[in-house]
Simulated scan of single mutants.
Amino acid sequence: MTFAGVYVPLITPFDASGAVAFDALERLAHDVLDGGAAGLVALGTTGEPGSLDDKERDGVLDVIAGVCRARRAQLIVGANRIGDAAGVPSHAVAVLTLVPPFLLPGEDGVVAYFEDFAARSPVPVLAYHVPYRTGQALSAAALRRIAAIDGVAGMKLAAGGIDTTVVDLLSDPPADLAILCGDDAFLAPLLSMGVPGAIIASAHLDTAAFTALVHDREPQPRLARLALALFAEPNPTVIKAVLHARGRIPTPDVRLPLLPASAASLHLALSV
C-alpha cells in the first residue's frame, strides 16, 4: 500500500443536545475528499475518541468507513489498543497507533510494543511518534527499528519541529516506509525533505490548498500561519470553532477535558 497525499483526521461534531452529529460528520467527510484529500482518519486523537462511548465510536467509524468505501478513498483507523484494531473494517488500509504514552517504557519497550501490535493487527500499522504528547523520546535508530518490523507500513512523524532526529531519519529514510508529516505548521519544510504526504487536522480548512502544497511542493506561507492559528489552543477546539463559524458543523462544542476555543483564537484563525 502506498501512502501519499493529505489524510484528514476528522473531528467528531456534536449537535445542540450534545449527541454526535452523524449527518454533519458525513458531509464533512465528503467535503475534504472533494478538496482532494487522499483519505480519512477515523477515531484519531482529533476526533476525541476518549470522550465517546462504544456506540458513538462504532457510529463514527461506520459513517467514515462508508464514505471512504463509496468514494474509494483510503481509510485509516485510530486504534491504540489491539482490541480496537481487531474491529477495523476490512477495507481499512491501516491502523494508526501512538507510541505508548505516559509510561516511558524506553526504546526497547516501545519497539517490543509495536512488534506485538503489528503481529496481531489485521491490517498494516502506522506508528504515531509525537514525543511532546507521549513523553517518550525516540532516537532515529529506534525509529528505524520500528520501521523494520513486519507489518509496520508507515509513521506519522510529529516531533514538534525539525530536530537532529528528524534530520537523521529523513536524510536516510527506511526503504518501503511512508513517513507522513504530523506537524501541520512544519508541512512545507518536511515536504522539502522528502515526506510523501501528511496526516494533518488543519486540512479540515482549505483542503484544496493543503493538497496542492503536497502535490506541487510550491511554498504557501499562509498555510503555516493558518496551522499555527488552528493550534493556538488544544486541538480540535479552534478547528471546531472555525468549522461552526463557517456553517459546516452545528456547534463548536467539545467534550471535557477540552473547553471551547476563545473568541480571540477564533477571530485570529478566521482572519488568516
Rank of each mutant, 00 (worst) to 15 (best):
M1Q: 13
A4I: 02
V6L: 11
P9E: 04
F14N: 07
D15N: 12
S17M: 12
A19G: 11
L25Q: 04
L25V: 12
L25S: 05
E26I: 07
E26F: 08
A29R: 06
A29W: 05
H30G: 12
D34N: 08
G39E: 04
L40F: 04
L43C: 06
G44R: 06
G47V: 01
P49E: 08
G50Y: 14
S51C: 12
D54H: 14
R57W: 09
D58M: 11
G59V: 07
L61R: 10
L61D: 03
L61E: 01
C68R: 02
A70V: 11
A70T: 09
A73D: 04
L75M: 08
A79H: 00
I82T: 03
D84M: 14
A85V: 02
A86Y: 11
S90P: 09
H91I: 12
H91Y: 13
V93T: 13
A94F: 02
L96E: 07
L96W: 00
L98I: 14
L98V: 15
V99R: 06
P100A: 12
L103N: 15
P105V: 11
D108G: 12
D108S: 15
G109V: 09
V110I: 14
Y113I: 09
E115T: 13
D116R: 15
A119Y: 14
R120S: 13
R120K: 14
V123D: 06
V125S: 07
V125L: 07
A127W: 01
A127N: 01
Y128A: 06
Y132N: 15
Y132L: 15
T134R: 08
T134D: 12
Q136R: 04
A137K: 15
S139K: 00
A141N: 13
A141M: 13
L143F: 07
R145N: 11
A148Q: 09
I149C: 02
G151Q: 03
A153V: 09
K156L: 08
A158K: 01
A159T: 10
S171P: 02
D172I: 07
D172V: 04
P173K: 03
P174W: 08
D176R: 11
L177M: 14
A178L: 07
A178I: 07
I179P: 05
L180P: 00
L180E: 02
F186K: 02
P189F: 07
L190T: 05
S192Q: 14
G194V: 12
V195R: 02
P196D: 11
A198N: 05
A203V: 06
H204W: 04
D206Q: 14
T207N: 05
F210P: 00
L213Q: 00
R222F: 11
L223R: 00
L223N: 07
R225C: 09
K240T: 03
L243P: 02
H244R: 14
P250F: 13
T251W: 08
P252H: 01
D253L: 11
D253K: 12
V254C: 06
V254I: 07
R255I: 10
L256G: 13
P257V: 10
A263F: 11
S265W: 08
L266P: 06
H267R: 15
S271E: 13
V272K: 03
